[in-house]
Design a protein around this nucleic acid. Structure first.
Lengths: 338, 338
DNA sequence: CACTGGCACTCGGGCATGGCGAGTGCCAAG
DNA sequence: CTTGGCACTCGCCATGCCCGAGTGCCAGTG
């Protein structure tokens, strides 16, 4: 276990390095922080910290920089979550006010988060699995062609074409529409399958095929589209990454284009608590020199999706975490209202 | 007017510079191209080309690089559009096959284009203004709350909430739905306003307010959502921009996040013909060191949207133009089929 | 008259050199 | 355990130098 002062030294190193982006030495440390000890003492502490793997020197006889392990300790033990200033809170409110639909909410959120943290923001659309059904609509486009439209309580709309095995009358269509809605409106997506299971049986024989097809499409939509969408923004902030820039930025841009990677990234943390993944803790190796701060958000008490930011490991963790948390809460409110 | 050989020299310079990314000198030129003259002659030609503003030297006594004006001449007069190889054509087909909905088509297109050109791809969603209505649906969510769903022939779906001034019965709703559809289905969006103009008059007085509100929302959707969406991809290709990289890439990433800028960029060319904007020809100054190759695409004979790529002015114009044109044609086919 | 070869000149890039400064590790003393 | 001192390391930067690619000009030639 490290002594109190050594932890203090680590904190000072992280803070300075995040600020200056340059390896920090013992003398500079004692000058900028009131540690109450001399540089020589700090040097000894640093030697210990290095031995334990919390800091490292880029080359012999240069200052130290924190390792992933060092950042981890910093985040877990040494730093809290910095609450936003009230101007910042007001900025959030102004920025989000007047969003008209779900796309708009997500779009504004991603811009807001990118601006606030000066990093790359990632916002997942509210997931279908945890949402409830607001409405199911069936439209007849051609005698044997229907369109199925699914509307969720979070405002998301999904549509699918359905090719019927047999022509389907307007009366049957209205009937199916009504029965379907009476069963599933207000229910959670996960519960839908069993709720509609016996529906085909109650129809005329000739219509059963179509009803089954429609239901199959509906269930398919629920499953397939659980593959969730997301929006990213603030990629221009990648330019503030560091000096060894081109080599760093490439894999990150590539990773950001792989929605699958990002979804996995956000999904990794099980519940809605804030997660911080630092450097090599990220499974995807393109993101080995980045940190990801993510948190769930939701319209109610439960998280329906995640949002977060991706930035260099050398980031302002308390500030970033504060911004991410605040934005998540606010978006939750917005969704709850609509 | 420049002599034939001088044009040939310019062409050689452009080709070499695009390939090597380094200023090209007279000797290297004569070695790599069978110009049939000596370096000294080429030097004289280069002096003329420089005087005319087609090429420039980065520093005294270095090779020449093409200017924007030089690229312009190259594109207009010296280079054609390189057709894709048949493996490439097959790749397009494979890549696009199996797209399930509009989002998927656009998503695949953007990835395909980015991969083919190794540059940043931008694809605009089919515009509402030039599309036709496939179906309009009205759903009753609450006694005085409706949802309006608009489906286009390109597969795009837009939905809007409508708060009614008065409760609206199911019978009236069905009536409105039927009449609305009989008037607008198959018609172009631009024609819709006049087609529905007199609709409120034919309803009971008590329902007129609601009908007007619904129509207003519909028209608003047509106008507002003409503000078009787009998708971009291949930003990782920005890393292959050049050596003076960080300073170049920043404004480009910023521009790419401003959808408005991109829409303007694509929209600038009036018709569906291929447009090439080189360097400073781009109005947005963040894109002053990039070239934009764009072309319209559509499900029928007429363009409903644009797509294109953004890359360094030093790009392979014939190849890029070929890829852009081929992809646009193919997407047009796909849309026509669906 | 256009092209060519020769020539002197320019200038950026690469490389070795050397001084500077920040930082380190170790040690002996308080 | 802390501190001041000290010798040492090494990256960074400025300097100076050379080399080569490239240029412009000019006189000569078919």
């Amino acid at each position: 276990m490290l002594s109190e002062r050594r932890l203090e030294v680590l904190r000072a190193i992280v803070q300075d390095y995040v600020g200056t982006e340059e390896p920090v030495g013992s003398k500079a440390l004692t000058e900028r922080h009131a540690l109450g000890v001399s540089p020589a003492t700090v040097r000894n502490d640093m030697a210990v910290l290095e031995e334990e793997g919390y800091i490292a020197q880029p080359h012999t006889s240069a200052g130290r920089i924190p390792t992933d392990k060092g950042y981890r300790l910093f985040v877990d033990k040494l730093a809290g979550v910095k609450p936003l200033s009230s101007p910042e809170r007001r900025a959030i409110q102004n920025f989000m006010a007047g969003a008209v639909d779900l796309d708009d909410v997500v779009g504004r959120t991603v811009r807001l988060l990118a601006q606030l943290t000066r990093q790359v923001a990632v916002v997942q659309y509210p997931s279908l699995t945890r949402s409830t059904v607001r409405h199911v609509e069936l439209l007849s486009l051609a005698p044997a062609r229907l369109m199925l439209v699914l509307i969720t309580d979070t405002g998301r709309v999904e549509q699918r074409m359905v090719d019927c095995p047999a022509p389907f009358g307007e009366a049957s269509l209205a009937d199916l529409r009504a029965r379907l809605n009476s069963r599933v409106v207000g229910r959670r997506f996960a519960d839908v399958p069993q709720l509609v299971q016996d529906l085909p049986e109650s129809f005329e024989t000739e219509d059963r095929g179509t009803v089954s097809t429609v239901l199959a499409t509906l269930l398919e939509t629920l499953v397939e589209e659980t593959e969730e969408r997301l929006m990213i923004g603030g990629t221009a902030n990648l330019t503030r990454f560091g000096h060894d820039f081109p080599v760093m930025i490439r894999p990150v841009l590539e990773a950001l284009e792989e929605q699958v990677v990002l979804l996995k990234l956000l999904g990794e943390a099980k519940d809605s608590a804030m997660t911080v993944r630092i450097g090599h803790e990220n499974a995807h190796e393109g993101l080995n020199s980045t940190s990801v701060v993510a948190v769930g958000y939701g319209s109610g008490d439960e998280a329906v999706a995640k949002l977060g930011v991706v930035g260099p490991t050398r980031m302002d963790y308390p500030g970033t975490m504060g911004a991410v948390r605040a934005v998540a809460r606010y978006v939750g409110q917005i969704l709850a209202e609509s």
